[in-house]
Amino acid sequence: MTANGGALLEITDLGVSFTTDEGMVRAVDGVSLAVHPGRTLGIVGESGSGKSVATKAVIRLLPANARIDGGSRILLRRAEGEIDIARLPAGGRELRRLRGGDIGMIFQEPMASFSPVYTIGNQMIEAILAHRDHLDRRLGRRFDRRAARDHAIRMLERVGMSNARLRIDQYPHELSGGMRQRAMIALALSTHPSLLIADEPTTALDVTIQAQILDLMLELQRELGMAMLFITHDMGVIARIAEEVAVMYLGRIVERGPTREVIRDPAHPYTRGLLAALPRVETSRRRLTPVPGDIPSPLQRPAGCPFHTRCPRRMPGLCDREVPADTALDARRSVACHLFGGRAS
């Protein structure tokens, strides 16, 4: 595995299950990954692949019917020492200090992630004041309400909001979608987190605004030196923002490696399918080639390799029986597929 001592966040063997009326749903099944300081890891996959659940587990923002496996470890390394987030008591003080303090989060729908009945400023100042101690450590200054407001205005200006002094007292519905997402980024970054989790932050936005937001995030990342865990279903977005990528399918990571290499030479049949499904201008094909079939219900996980039901290169008798192990392709790339595992073992 990634025996990397320098990782900021190191997830080992994460499993998450949901108890539902129809039975047990295994949403995340043995995921391990590492995020390094100042770098971006992209997680890509279709809806239902477990990418959102896996990242929400990092700040323990899972619904009441979800359970994290006893063996899961979510290690966060901080200046004060490392902690295993998976073992923190729910609703405890320690967990609250992480949420929005060391780890910031932005969500897919900028409209819905602000409460409609409070101003942008109210919600930002609240976040800043909730993490006074954290900011004191990081910036060496203690915020009162007035200073928190000034800080919030500066953050809004920093994310490119004109008239921030005015905008801070506006309600979310008075801002456009792009502006709201900028405000959300300003809120999440106002506490200077060392890790930002972005759950499809650009999916609900227009393409031009999407590009602006991505550029802004890259710029802020460089400036603040934070690490990012970036979730999307869009390979194009990943190519733009993430140095490393992990492809998830049905709760498992099927392929990982440096983004450039994975895109240039995808190993796993599913990654190939995802890339082939991207529209390309240069080839100007009339029709897109989607990955055939639908993602199976997590209630009925296929035996063996989770992808074998849709795989164009499945090997009957092997893929539908045995779960493929993670196989290293080189020092930084690995894939979980029998096409490669056969050679390795």
């Binding site: 700040i59 923002l61 609703g91 609250r96 200090r97 992480l98 949420r99 929005g100 303090g101 910031g104 989060m105 969500f107 729908e109 819905a112 992630s113 602000f114 409460s115 409609p116 009945v117 409070y118 919600q123 609240e126 976040a127 909730a130 993490h131 959300m184 809120l187």
Partner: peptide, 26 residues
């Protein structure tokens, strides 16, 4: 069930404050 409740939790607010300030008011 709305996202802004989770967003408030992700900001690190204590649970009672999340509940009373956000969904209860609506």
């Amino acid at each position: 069930a709305k996202l802004y409740v989770d967003a408030a939790r992700a900001r690190g607010l204590p649970e009672w404050k999340v509940i009373l300030k956000y969904p209860a008011r609506l």
